[in-house]
Amino acid sequence: MEWARLIDKVTSKSLWMMMYCTGCGAIEMPPTVTSRWDVERFGIMPMATPRQADIFLITGYLTKKTLKRVIYVYEQMPEPKYVIAHGSCPIDGGIYYDSYNTINRLDLFIPVDLYIQGCMPRAEAVMDALLKLREMVEKGEANAWQKYHENFEYYDKNQKALFGENWRAVMTL
């Protein structure tokens, strides 16, 4: 148990992000990672591929088309993995709540650790969320990824309801 705590403590000092950037929120990323706010001083770095990442930052609205990719990428990330929903869109649809093609709630499809409210949230808010996540990881509270195992039927049902029964056929590799 002690060992696990120690690992959690170290892990919280090194969190790498994969950023999903087709929503508006992408514009807040440059100030967050470059010299304005410099998240790297907390050991948080943007990474290029899901295999290397710990945090999945969903920066904005999701459509039916992009959600598939998000789920696919999420499943490619090694565990433990943390999802941050950034902005109103992934929380409740935001200003696109009545669009024919956007997804209103991300957490129906994959488990989410943290939500950043706002349209759009500023870099300070992103920093705040990242530090909060850091704290949660250190305390061993950021366990949403386990829900994906435990409640897979629930997520799978929602995914199937949206994309149709056979949507995973594309992903049979």
């Binding site: 690992i7 001083r41 050991g43 710990d54």
Partner: peptide, 23 residues
């Protein structure tokens, strides 16, 4: 920028080896 502490790569490596699932 300030940049990460000097021991950052050690933390990175420990984190990577403590990942619970690998492919």
């Amino acid at each position: 920028r300030y940049g990460p502490p000097l021991w950052q790569p050690y933390a990175d490596v420990i984190k990577l080896f403590s990942k619970k699932s690998n492919f």
